[in-house]
Design a protein around this nucleic acid. Structure first.
Length: 939
DNA sequence: AAGAAAAAAAAA
């Protein structure tokens, strides 16, 4: 470390110009907040964040990356935070405020954004303060770049080889330059001129940038600046120490209001964490017995087990053990969908409430979180809350312990809460080359990251998960992965990515194969031992599953044979009672089958003198509210609670798309499904006799075993036996392979979980499964590879390559649309509205509720109620459908001002004077919102 | 030509 800091220790230098401002927006006319004050505020905030908020484990990681002690790292970070806006001392920036002309400074052409100026100027100025500019990882470059990135995007290094580099870059030796140097000197002096580090690791620099941004966001709040202004501003440089002192006094309260604390470790046994579980099951016992001994620092835990084996509780317990061992006691639970995230939020908050005696913050993170009634801020309190029992997440008492500050509800800040639950996308955005990704990475760094249902990720998303694990391993963040079915190679790839980030050598011993069901624990600390559960896991006894392929013609306009096949499977149900689900591949097929089965079952019931079965239809193309209602209904009638309460129908048939594959807790006596890849079929079969082990259901006599009938084509050798649309949903290679696999297993019941891994691995690896179409397998592999490389391209580079240059973390020489957490998601949300003969538009067919065209809030803004009324009727359609019909589908112009409404499009239905309804014709498609079927599309 | 489900998008 160097110590040649050229600053006079006698006090801050004279001549600082307090009319140079740092903040003016939102302040009263003519009032501007001096830059020097803002810089010291940010330094004070960074200091407090480091002291009171950053996790002990993150302290270590950053200090290690700066090759110094935790204390010295803190001094450096507060110093750097105090320099972040130094680029505002330019004619370009100061001239922005037209109300105050600049006096005594030369004009300049120079118009670079102030963050860019910081990056350039500091690169030249820091060496005078002892920052090395040569070597493998010159700290000068790293610090300049990380401060230049405080708006969320990094700038490229400039080459500064000329003898007068600053002049060459457009910073001549003028009054501006004098002020920049004075500010730099004053801030450095006031913050104790810490010695420059010898080297800086890029991943640590990324986290430090996150801290600087967090500090800047905190002290840029108008309420805080207002308080600082009210306390009086410094008049001379001699007043600056007092300003810093005042900022230091105020900042802890600022962190408190924002909800930024440090979660306390949760300690105790499994039974203490889950008092409602009398006897932990095999998985939970195994982890409780072995994990505490294995965890001596950070690591990765992968758990593979079928649904219903208590994986969530096991993960929450493991997170306590692993978080404590790694000094990161926060928690992020990531799920594949918004619906599953909502459910998990309730479970996790209930658990945390039991585990935390002191108030803590928990956020729910996804695009529609604000619609969740359990996730309200203190401001919009539900009036009925007082009557709720204290255990209900909506109750006042509950919220006192699980609180969310307004600040944490702001964009991109939710991961700074102690605990968070949300979509996997929210975690993946930390690993995307998108703006402010370092803010998210910092949020994750202080937590144990749990990713539930990893199997739900496609190859694009898996590439992003892999890169994220790479970084989390490097940053020593504990990770827990949960999966129902996972190809063994995928499991290995994920573990390797984490360990590689943690520094594992390529030639290290191979990762042992994961047994199913089972768990693997990989230590992030050298020599990176990997442990597989020592004894086989005891699992819930399940009856073997009969997987029965039923071959029938699936192509062509005539569906008689197909309809009849389904009817034959369901005949006994109609006659004797029972519940079944039929899963079709496309929405149109589900609508068609629903229609046919409803007609037939009514007829057949009449003929046999029984009650017709209740019919349900579920797919994504229903208005949101209706979809939710149907879902609730199904779970209520066919779920675990229906049986004991007498809610289970005598007979019922649910027709659905793959939408019921995830997150719907129902139990059917029989399932019929279109052909799909085996891991998805197994996932679906999880709803067959799901609650059998609880012994709460009386099965009809015809249902002697859990049975999944798979509707498959006659032939297994050619693609044209499959309906054309299917190939866009599942690769034909996987469908034909699965079909052959099913034929092989047709007379042999599938034991769950024992046979699952063999089936899942076999579908991909067995060379005999698709002998006639080698080109098809190649095509699938090529497609997978393409998706994977698209994911890798959208992701930040691996931590090793980021160590020398942060630019690649956020550069935008790739298309914005390519930087997404999901690939090819071209979805538009539409609302079906109804236009009467006068051209008035309504939200309902009965013309009783108007389409909101003007906002009812003060400045024409739309109220939550109005937004909710529209969004609750919205449904997703492929964007392509609306492509050439912008005008026809255009929403009211006033919607463009609302971030929630501006993306919504309209499907205008005309209502005639006689009440007849006509849906819109968009190009070759006629659409109509059918009250029973959802959005029907006719070609 | 044709299509499950899934998420997100404003910061100082």
């Amino acid at each position: 470390m160097r110590n040649n800091v050229p600053v006079d220790a006698a006090g801050p230098p004279e001549g600082i110009d307090f009319s140079l401002w740092g903040k003016s927006e939102g302040l009263p006319p003519g009032v501007r907040y001096p830059l020097a004050c803002h810089l010291l505020d940010a330094a004070a905030a960074a200091e407090a964040l480091w002291r009171d908020h950053v996790s002990p484990g993150v302290h270590e990681t950053i200090a290690h990356g700066l090759d110094t002690t935790v204390d010295h790292a803190g001094t450096l970070i507060r110093h750097w935070a105090g320099l972040h806006d130094i680029g505002k001392i330019t004619h370009g920036f100061q001239g922005q405020d037209a109300t105050a002309p600049i006096r005594g400074y030369p004009a300049a052409e120079h118009r670079k954004a102030h963050d860019h100026v910081a990056a350039e100027w500091l690169q030249c100025a820091l060496p005078e303060y002892g920052y090395p500019k040569d070597g493998r990882r010159p700290p000068t470059l790293m610090v300049a770049q990380l401060l230049g990135g405080h708006h969320g995007r990094f700038h490229q290094h400039v080459s500064v080889s000329s003898s007068a580099p600053l002049r060459a870059l457009g910073y001549p030796d003028d009054a501006w330059e004098t002020q920049r140097r004075l500010h730099l000197a004053a801030v450095t002096e006031l913050l104790g001129h810490p010695a420059a580090p010898d080297q800086i690791d890029g991943t640590a620099a990324a986290l430090v940038c996150g801290v600087v941004i967090q500090a800047d966001w905190l002290v840029s709040q108008l309420s805080f600046i207002g308080r600082q202004l009210a306390g009086g501003l410094p008049a001379t440089p001699g007043d600056l120490p007092r300003h810093l002192h005042r900022a230091r006094e105020k900042v802890p309260a600022l962190l408190g209001e924002a909800g930024l604390g440090r979660p306390a470790p949760r300690t105790g046994s499994f039974t203490a964490a889950f008092p409602s579980i009398d006897t932990p099951n095999g998985l939970q016992r195994s982890l409780a017995e072995h994990l505490p001994r294995l965890c001596e620092g950070p690591g990765l835990l992968l758990v593979t087990a079928p649904m219903g084996e208590g994986k969530t509780e096991a993960a929450l317990y493991a997170a306590e053990v692993m978080g404590r061992a790694a000094g990161r006691c926060g928690l992020y639970v990531a799920l594949p969908t918004m619906a599953t995230a909502d459910q998990m939020f309730t479970r996790v908050t209930t658990y945390l409430r039991r585990r935390n005696a002191t108030p803590s913050t928990t956020t729910l993170l996804h695009g529609m979180a604000w619609l969740n009634p359990h996730y309200l801020s203190q401001q919009d309190t539900a009036p009925a809350e007082e009557q709720l029992p204290p255990d209900n997440p909506g109750s006042a008492e509950f919220r006192r312990l699980v609180e969310v500050s307004e600040w944490l509800r702001g964009r991109k800040r939710g991961l700074f809460a102690d605990y968070a639950v949300g979509t996997i996308d929210q975690a993946l955005m930390a690993a995307l080359r998108s703006r402010h990704n370092v803010v998210r990475m910092l949020g994750l760094a202080g937590k144990t990251v749990v990713i539930d249902e990893v199997h739900a990720a496609d190859s694009y998303m898996l590439a992003l998960v892999t890169r994220l694990l790479n970084w989390l391993g490097r940053l020593q963040v504990p990770v827990i992965l949960l999966s129902a079915t996972l190809h063994h190679r995928t499991a290995r790839t994920l573990i390797e990515a984490y360990l590689k980030g943690a520094g594992r050598r390529r030639n290290a011993a191979p990762i042992p194969t994961v047994a199913y069901p089972g768990w693997v624990y990989a230590s992030a600390q050298s020599p990176h031992p990997v442990t597989v559960n020592p004894e086989p896991l005891e699992t819930t006894q399940r009856k073997p599953l009969a997987l029965h392929p039923r071959e029938v013609s699936l192509t062509g306009d005539d569906t008689t044979a197909l309809d009849r096949a389904i009817q034959e499977e369901l005949a006994k149900l109609v006659e004797q009672g029972g519940c079944a689900a039929v899963i079709r591949t496309t929405v149109a097929e589900a609508q068609h089958t629903f229609h046919r089965i409803a007609e037939w079952s009514a007829r057949h019931a009449r003929a046999t003198g029984t009650e017709p079965p209740e019919m349900y239809l579920l797919h994504a193309r229903f208005p949101a509210q209706q979809r939710e209602r149907v879902t609730e209904d199904i779970v209520h009638r066919l779920g675990a609670n229906g049986a004991p309460n007498g809610q289970r129908p005598r007979s019922a048939i649910l027709v659905a798309t793959a939408i019921i594959e995830q997150s719907i807790d129902i139990d059917v006596d029989l399932m019929v499904s279109d052909l799909a890849p085996i891991h998805l079929l197994l996932q679906r079969s999880g709803r067959c006799w799901r609650h059998e082990h609880r012994g709460i259901l009386a099965r009809p006599a015809w249902a002697t075993e859990p049975r999944l009938v798979v509707l498959a084509p006659h032939r297994t050798d050619a693609e044209d036996a499959l309906p054309r649309g299917w190939s866009h949903i599942h690769h034909p290679s996987l469908l034909l392979r699965t079909h052959n696999l099913l034929r092989r297993w047709a007379n042999q019941p599938v034991r769950v979980p024992e046979d699952v891994q063999e089936l899942v691995d076999g579908m991909i690896d067995d060379t005999d499964l698709n002998p006639d179409n080698p080109h098809q397998d190649l095509d699938r592999e090529a497609t997978d590879l393409a998706y994977r490389s698209l994911g890798e391209n959208a992701a930040i580079p691996p931590p090793g390559r980021a160590t020398r240059d942060l630019y690649r973390l956020t550069d935008h020489d790739i298309d914005e649309a390519q930087v997404a957490t999901r690939f090819g998601a071209d979805t538009t949300r539409v609302v079906c509205c109804y236009s009467d003969s006068h051209g008035h538009r309504w939200l309902d067919e009965a013309l009783s509720e108007e389409l909101p065209e003007t906002g009812e809030l003060a400045h024409g803004g739309f109220s939550t109620g109005q937004v909710r009324a529209v969004l609750s009727r919205s449904l997703p359609v492929p964007g392509r459908w609306l492509e050439d019909h912008a005008e026809q589908a255009a929403p009211p112009e006033t919607w463009l001002t609302s971030p929630h409404l501006c993306q919504i499009r309209l499907l205008v239905h005309r209502v005639g004077p006689d009440g007849s309804v006509h849906g819109p014709q968009l190009g070759g498609r006629r659409m109509y919102l059918d009250p029973r079927l959802g959005l029907v599309v006719e070609p």
